[in-house]
Amino acid sequence: MSAPRGGRTGPARPGRTEVTKQKLFDAALRLVGERGAASVTVDEIAAEAGVAKGTVYYNFGSKDALVDALLRHGVELLASRLRRAAGLRDPSRALEATVDEALGFFGEYPSFAQLLVSEMWHTPGAWRETLELLRDDLALIIRGVLDRLQEAGRLPEGVQPATAAAALFGTLLVVSLDWHVFHPERSREDVRESVLVLIRGLAGRTDS
């Protein structure tokens, strides 16, 4: 079989490089944080990221596809941190590390927390279905830690890992948003300690 015209082999629409995705991710979050996802245009995102508008359309096809891909990119960045924390040998330490990593991520990308909260509870939302799937992926990482606690006999009786994981992820999102919108003067360590006070009984720890 001959190569496509122009000598290109492989898919007609090559994948974005990580550098380009990160530029677009950062640019979109800056703009979304200022005005919300609905009012931001592809032209503005491209200009903010320093890439050509045509490049954005070539790689993504539409604004909805662009935002969808950026949501997935952001969640994968967060998920990679949570997986690393969840991999700690002691499940109590792993749960505390997961909290710390989530707060650290939302500290770096507060607009992402805002976007997640606004779109998850926005009905109808252009990216709600995507966000529900992504939320489930993140909650599943947390649930893995809680399952380990349950297997070790360190989860309080009656606590269901699936429900607790969803509740903890929601708590981290809302706490992060409250932190950056209403209490930006608080340190990450202060916010982290407040959350850990709530979950130490769940994690089977009473020390700091």
Rank of each mutant, 00 (worst) to 15 (best):
V197F: 06
L88N: 15
E18A: 12
A38T: 11
L78C: 02
D207K: 01
L196N: 02
A139S: 13
I45R: 02
I141G: 14
P91S: 02
V56Q: 10
L131C: 10
E119I: 05
P184I: 05
G15S: 05
F25V: 07
Y57F: 09
V191R: 03
P14T: 05
R154E: 02
A79S: 01
H180E: 12
R16M: 10
T9V: 10
L172G: 09
P4E: 09
A126S: 14
G50K: 03
T41Q: 01
R30F: 11
V75H: 15
Q160N: 12
K23D: 12
A102W: 04
L31G: 00
G107I: 07
E18H: 01
V67P: 08
A46C: 00
G15M: 07
G153V: 00
T9M: 01
D178V: 06
L115K: 09
D136R: 05
V117G: 12
A12R: 08
R35D: 03
V191M: 04
T41F: 03
G104I: 08
T171D: 14
E108R: 15
H183A: 13
D178R: 08
L202V: 11
A38P: 05
H122W: 14
A97T: 11
G6C: 03
L24D: 03
D90C: 11
S2A: 13
G153S: 01
Q150G: 06
G10D: 02
V75S: 15
R89Y: 15
E185R: 08
A49G: 04
V195R: 02
I141D: 15
V175A: 13
S62V: 12
D26N: 05
T9G: 13
K21V: 00
A3L: 10
G204D: 08
G54Q: 02
A97Y: 07
R148H: 00
L177N: 06
W127M: 04
L140V: 04
R13S: 02
L66P: 03
E108T: 15
V175W: 01
G33H: 14
L168A: 06
A12F: 06
A3H: 09
A126F: 08
L66F: 02
L172C: 12
V42I: 08
S62Y: 08
G125C: 01
A94E: 06
K53L: 10
E101T: 10
G170C: 08
R186E: 12
V175N: 07
T20S: 09
V32Y: 02
A113S: 14
R143E: 13
V40I: 12
S187C: 01
S118Q: 07
Y58C: 10
G6Q: 07
R93Y: 08
A3K: 14
L70K: 05
D190H: 04
R81E: 15
Q114H: 11
A166L: 03
K53C: 10
R35S: 09
E108V: 15
A85N: 06
A37F: 02
T17N: 04
T20A: 09
I142V: 14
A126E: 14
R13C: 05
A166M: 10
P14L: 07
R128T: 06
A152L: 07
R143L: 09
E101S: 12
L29M: 09
E18K: 09
